[in-house]
């Protein structure tokens, strides 16, 4: 009884905060409002439980204290409503970056976080995460090296996890248009309570900023999970093309292909559990932006997802379509 009462108060508290934020957001100068709907269904089954309508208030602004020192903030509050209004989803995010660039040197401090609360008919489950990282780069307009250490702290319903991340790499500009970006990243969880395992990922990213309004990108990432053996890895490839169809209309075609073997985790009692099975996943996306006026943009996104599980020889196919209108103030 007392527990139910507390839960009701918590729900009211969260809703009050959200309403307060919704009211106060327009007071900021670089405010934008976004309203949209997302329809996702399994194929051939018809299941719209993952679909929702949503509203988002966001505020992004940059402050240039000098030509070298700048600060960028991007915060948003997104609320989603599932069919029949059974669940209320809310995510608040805030990203802060303080950059110092002088000639060949760039140092950027980033602090970001999100707070996720979902209020359903029978539960309230806040999850929050805070990330902080430092990006240090040195180089000229043709070659640059960087290092990017970071920490992330995640609180879910049961556990709190601290992760240490480190990324290092180089960027080489070819013909002034093509960027070749080899690098390596490592992820080391302080504890493995939530199934996180240490991993190391060499990667090779390419960006081609062609001379016409067309950008081509490719990201290849090979993650080896620890303890390493020959069958514990994730291979990911993401090709992407962004082009201008006509003034005010852009389109991005992107596809993610991922092959992963199994992933195990050592539980507190010393036993080993499988977190996921070997699978191949392919998820192409088509994103389009239509600038209706200087301040109003229609965004459309069509997605397709196919996952093949090798152990069970089963397939999951989903299709999704989302539409939203963004209004900048």
């Amino acid at each position: 009884m007392i527990f139910n009462s507390c839960r009701r108060y918590r729900k009211s508290f969260y809703l009050s905060i959200i309403i307060l934020l919704l009211i106060s957001f327009p007071l900021f100068s670089e405010f934008s409002f976004d309203a949209g709907t997302q329809v996702i269904s399994a194929i051939p089954r018809y299941d719209l439980s993952g679909s929702n309508i949503w509203l988002e208030m966001s505020w992004a602004d940059s402050y240039y204290f000098s030509e070298s020192l700048s600060y960028f903030i991007d915060s948003a509050l997104r609320t989603g409503y599932t069919p029949l209004m059974q669940n209320f989803e809310g995510i608040a995010t805030c990203n802060n970056y303080l950059s110092f660039r002088k000639n060949s040197f760039l140092a950027r401090l980033g602090i970001s976080g999100y707070y996720d609360l979902t209020i359903g008919s029978d539960y309230t489950s806040p999850v929050w995460q805070i990330n902080t990282d430092v990006f240090i780069s040195y180089g000229n307009y043709q070659f640059s090296v960087y290092i990017n250490p970071g920490l992330s702290l995640l609180q879910n319903e049961l556990n709190r996890t601290l992760n240490f991340n480190l990324q290092a790499g180089a960027v080489y500009a070819l013909f002034g248009q093509i960027l070749i970006k080899p690098g390596i990243s490592a992820e080391i969880p302080a504890e493995q309570t939530n199934g996180e395992v240490p991993g190391i990922s060499p990667f090779l990213n390419l960006s081609w900023y062609t001379g016409i309004p067309l950008t081509l990108k490719s990201k290849i990432n090979y993650r080896v999970n620890f303890p390493a053996d020959q069958n514990n890895f994730v291979l990911t490839w993401i090709p992407e093309a962004t082009l201008l169809l006509r003034r005010g209309i852009t389109a991005t075609v992107r596809s993610k292909a991922e092959y992963k073997t199994y992933q195990t985790s050592t539980l507190s009692d010393g036993s080993t559990a499988y977190l996921y099975d070997p699978a191949f996943k392919l998820s192409p996306e088509l994103l389009s932006d239509f600038s209706l006026t200087d301040t109003i943009t229609l965004h459309a996104k069509a997605t397709l997802g196919w996952t093949h599980y090798y152990n069970t020889e089963t397939d999951d196919i989903t299709a999704g379509l989302s539409l939203d209108i963004e209004i900048e103030f």
């Binding site: 948003a76 970056y97 660039r101 780069s137 307009y141 960027v171 500009a173």
Partner: peptide
């Protein structure tokens, strides 16, 4: 502003790519 400041500071396509990659929401 990013383009103007980055180019003025002696940067090029690499530095512009760095600036833009951490901003897109």
């Amino acid at each position: 502003t990013i383009i103007k400041n980055t180019l003025t500071n002696g940067g090029g396509i690499i530095q512009l790519d760095q600036e833009i990659s951490n901003r897109g929401r």
